[in-house]
Amino acid sequence: MSLDKDTVRKIANLARLEVRDDELNHLAGELSNILQFVEQLAEVNTDGVAPMTSVAHMELPRRADEVTDGGYPDKVLANAPERNDGFFLVPKVVE
């Protein structure tokens, strides 16, 4: 698979990464190279093989649905770039 500039722009948008127009060509080449490299997997017969999502040989543990943590909003907000009155602040999203 060879990626064109438009596809790179689309992926960058999906990933919420601003990419300058003058970087698109270079990135398209680089990402295409990588895809060509990983596409050798196509030659492996994986019929009937179940995808491996985890190597942990265990059931996902469950616990009671109880609040076990929290009660320290100042700590949670301590690293926020912008905060006010116990909330994170973001640019206006609703007109």
């Binding site: 680089e30 990402l31 994986t46 491996m52």
Partner: peptide, 27 residues
Amino acid sequence: RRILIGTYVLSAGYYDAYYIKAQKVRR
């Protein structure tokens, strides 16, 4: 670079061909 590749292999239309395929080979 890795975020872009990862986003691509997880995107609609490519998820099976890349991501699921890789998980099968991983097994």
